[in-house]
Amino acid sequence: MTVITAEQIAAGAAPRRRRIRDWSDAVLSGYLLLFFAYMFLPLMFMVAAAFNANPTPSVTDWQGFTLKWFQALPRDARFVQGLLHSLAIAGGVIVISIPLGLAGALILTRLQSRASTLLYTVLVSPILTPGIVLGATTMIFWRDAFGMEAGLFTAAIAQAAFIASYCMLMFMARLQRQDRALEEAALDLGASSVFVFRRITLPFLMPTMLTAALISFLQSIENYNTTFFAIGSSWTLVTEIGARMRFGLSPMINVIGVIFVVITVVSATIWVLARRRGGNG
């Protein structure tokens, strides 16, 4: 018999297809395992070495468990001062970025003209500009135009240049979900524009405002490239880490690493859990 029915073809093809699928799934799983090992192993080494008494950060040359590097950190004046600088800059960045990002987003969501794409391009361009260029231009401009030497102020300005763009994108995403009828209803009930903004729009944006502040804070604290160029003779926690690392490795940096890892893991877990609950609810 040479007649083959469609059922026979299907019966023959299906298991084969499933085999291929299982096989490619297995390859993908194996690859993921490798990928996450690549991502996490170095970080684990970094964390482990923070507890090694060896003054050269190492996990292979173990000289005993210690917490002395943790005790040494708060006594290191430059690190502590750097942290204070970082916090001051981050505060400044939030104060600058939130109003700017908000104003830009409010304008862009309501501007009905061809200029809006151009405006949008200009306002997001800092995100697409290399950090060192932002740092350098800020440093040059503020010195040439206002005689302002590079320092904490220029660092905050340079960071705010691109962090404000991120804030703007967040506000725009939120504003696009806003029901225009709410504003119109308020206006119709006799509210002035300012009253509508204060009583309707701002409360609606409040959650985004908090998220944007948090993200601005983290971006500012973590920033290296831009800050490195714009900060002049001053320093932040992160540029100080960079300066130390050029001289060689110190377990104190591992300790900072451990702190960062703990903060990151905790907040990422909270975020993922919150997202899951929000997604299900």
Binding site: F40, L43, M46, T56, P57, V59, L249, G257, V261, V272
Partner: peptide
């Protein structure tokens, strides 16, 4: 979680962890 954690950890610290590996007395 597996993607966000390494992504959110400071650039310099990610670099640092690799320098530890590649260092002459490294891992």
């Amino acid at each position: 979680l597996g993607l966000i954690i390494p992504y959110a950890i400071n650039e310099l610290l990610r670099i640092f962890s690799w320098v530890m590996i590649l260092e002459k007395q490294g891992i």
